[in-house]
Design a protein around this nucleic acid. Structure first.
Lengths: 228, 228
DNA sequence: GCTTGTCATATTGTTCAACAATCCTCAAAC
DNA sequence: GTTTGAGGATTGTTGAACAATATGACAAGC
């Protein structure tokens, strides 16, 4: 992670700021968010005010506001008097995240039933196209999007935001897990299977398949993160 | 809402700060949060930096950090270049909040079944005691706590935080609804009924009762807020 | 009387410098 | 090897200053 990385990102986002009337704190937060989510700022690393005011071209106060934004998004963790760090998921986090997912995704899928098929089918296809092109990071992203789409069947803004947050936190976990192909590859066919079952009218069986997927993904993630 | 109100609150919270190692921004946010939740800062009212730095005894920059905290909690809404306001729930907010509640509370109740009875029974009792003493604001608080306890049966930190947030937002709505007795009184017996049904082993019927309650509460709240 | 334009003011957004407070590291003493 | 103290780095906060934005008041024109 170099100042040059941030510099380039800043240019893009400065344009976006002009378009979207964002504040400087929002822009700085957006740059940091991107860097965290792509793994350029690894989990556990320190994000010191002094080191980032230059590349982000903001004052310390503005950067502190940006930090507040990102700590609430759980991407950063703020330790009073000791600074701000990129969050590192622990086993309890992983368990909780999957608990949330089971509660929401399974309930949403059951409630939506067949009506959810077009949306979910489209979401699976995105992943299948990325896999066909060997873009495994994109497959991971598409997988997360598929699952967000399940929760999105509820049609609730707050649930969408929660699941967006959950997805972001999961990505922190993925950065510690290495090879995206190994993790996401098998799940594509499972996602397709869930959609098929749903399309066949068996919402309860689809829900069971989804639950089984979530349990397996949790187990796999805990296997690595719990072993750290 | 006077400066004296804030002054007294500040003294309490200054003590708490010493105990809990909170930052000044956290303390300021806590004072404002309390004022908002008790209705001393009514929904829609402006919270200007200049007016609050004195009573809160912080600098503008620190206050801005506090605002960031509270906007993320949805208690304040930040309008770029125009200031910060206490959030005012609209009809769409109400609908979304109840959608979240239905998804989470109903699913949690179904999953917990009889195992949830002791916790929920205790929560109902708190409300019943408050009602017996005619403390209707406390009844409202106990009612919210009962419903948070349902969601708490999941045992997920993130779900608890979400429902804590939902409860805070609902309180904003209650401030616009007038008489707490009228709103909360009938719900006590309904809560007791839900717990009885659950204790009798009929989780599905308890879930239906809960869903019906949520639908009625939503309807009632929308009747007032939608009419504004 | 109504509309438009200008100007002044209030407020927000941000920067910067300074100081206080806290934490961490390293060296010295035991 | 352990403990203690000093120094430096960093964070937390304050306050002043300036830039930017929005709003309101007032005057001029129709």
């Amino acid at each position: 992670m170099t100042a040059a990385d941030i510099g380039g990102r800043l240019t893009e986002l400065a344009l976006e700021r002009r378009r979207e009337r964002s504040s400087a704190a929002d822009v700085a937060a957006a740059v940091l968010r991107d860097l965290i989510l792509e793994g350029a700022l690894p989990p556990g690393s320190r994000v010191s005010e002094e080191a980032f005011i230059g590349p982000l071209e903001v004052s310390r106060n503005t950067l502190r506001e940006a930090f507040r934004l990102l700590t609430h998004e759980r991407l950063l963790v703020h330790k009073l008097n000791r600074g701000v760090f990129v969050r590192r998921l622990d086993a309890a986090d992983v368990k909780d995240l999957f608990q949330v997912r089971r509660l929401i995704e399974c309930s949403a899928l059951l409630s939506a039933g067949k009506a959810g098929v077009p949306t979910l089918s489209a979401a699976v296809e995105v992943g299948e196209r990325a896999a066909a092109a060997g873009r495994w990071v994109d497959v991971g992203t598409a997988n997360l999007r598929f699952h967000q789409a399940i929760a999105g069947l509820v049609g609730s803004r707050r649930i969408d935001e929660l699941m967006h947050q959950v997805a972001a936190e999961l990505r922190l976990g993925f950065h510690e897990m290495g090879d995206p192909k190994a993790f996401h590859e098998s799940y594509l066919t499972r996602n397709r299977g869930i959609v098929h079952t749903l399309a066949a009218g068996d919402a309860m069986r689809a829900e069971s398949q989804l639950r089984a997927y979530l349990n397996d993904a949790e187990y796999e993630m805990l296997d690595i993160i719990g072993r750290r």
